[in-house]
Design a binder for these strands. Structure first.
Length: 271
DNA sequence: TTAGGCCTGCAC
DNA sequence: GTGCAGGCCTAA
């Protein structure tokens, strides 16, 4: 579900609900959703989150004393902001009651996501960002210049989060389609101008999706339970067999690194 | 580099 | 019932 645009929409829609509002109580309903499971969440009571930071698909909530909660939404995670007296939805794992008489609730049926507690934001960023590449919204050609000296295929590398952070299956396919690059293109053989096209396409696709509130295929919702509207603008993802909106040829569906992949065999030539 | 595992829900 | 799903980690 959530890739960079969806996490960004969650962040933006969460801020007005959360920032500066004192936390009245914290309830961990499912211990193994939190790392470490024994983290002193109660120490957040009396404090307020005052800042949010997103890097790739990771969302940091930073309290006024530095305590930091990292949220990763995995495949089915969501953050709900609802009245504190509203009934508890199934698969709600953490509940923050706020002085506004509203709750922030972390919910995740498949539990591929989770929450991580840190005493300080610095500790969180050291631990969480160490292995991540630059955020996909600000990645540049210079960041990818070292690809010339490395092996690997384009789509798996973009999904790996180490070169660029924030792309998942949907937006990789969209960006590759826009940049006219084949998903199995060797990264060391991408011409400089094609690399520029890739970086530009990544930014374009992500910014357009953010403007639409992200992509809702089925589950994704922002904190106010609103879906994203980018699904209708998808050019490649989910369109295998349908005509390419650029050349009219049939889009092809294949498996790449075990992931469903759609591309245009005419526009996206392998070099 | 690929396959499998982690989980649940949903379409078929 | 089977197969599949937007993520990501581990092991072979």
């Amino acid at each position: 579900m959530p890739e960079l645009p969806e996490v960004e929409e969650v962040r933006r829609s969460l801020e007005p609900e959360l920032l500066g509002v004192p936390i009245l109580s914290v309830e961990l309903l499912r211990g193994d959703f939190l790392t470490p499971p024994t983290a002193p969440l109660k120490k957040l009571v009396g404090h307020a989150f005052v800042r949010t930071v997103r890097h790739g698909k990771k969302l940091f909530l930073i309290a006024d004393d530095g305590q930091t909660l990292l949220i990763h939404l995995g495949m089915s995670g969501r953050v709900d902001c609802v009245a504190s007296d509203s009934s508890l939805a199934k698969h709600t794992h953490v509940r923050f009651a706020l002085a506004s008489k509203r709750d922030m609730r972390l919910r995740d049926p498949r539990r591929f996501g989770g929450a991580w507690y840190y005493q300080t934001f610095e500790a969180a960023r050291v631990r969480e960002l160490g292995a991540l590449g630059p955020d996909a919204l600000v990645v540049t050609v210079q960041h990818l210049a070292h690809w010339k000296q490395t092996r690997g295929r384009l789509k798996p590398r973009l999904l790996g989060q180490k070169d660029v952070a924030g792309l998942g299956n949907i937006y990789v396919d969209e960006a590759l389609w826009l940049a006219r690059l084949h998903p199995l293109q060797r990264v060391d053989r991408i011409a400089p101008e094609r690399l520029g096209a890739l970086v530009a396409a990544i930014r374009t696709v992500l910014e357009q999706s953010i403007r639409s509130g992200g992509t809702t295929l089925r589950d994704y919702r922002n904190v106010a339970d609103q879906p994203g509207e980018f699904a209708r603008q998808l050019q490649a993802y989910g369109r295998a067999g349908l005509p390419c909106l650029r050349c009219g040829g049939a889009l092809r569906g294949v498996q790449v690194a075990g992931r469903t992949t759609v591309f245009c065999p005419v526009c996206q030539r392998r070099r």
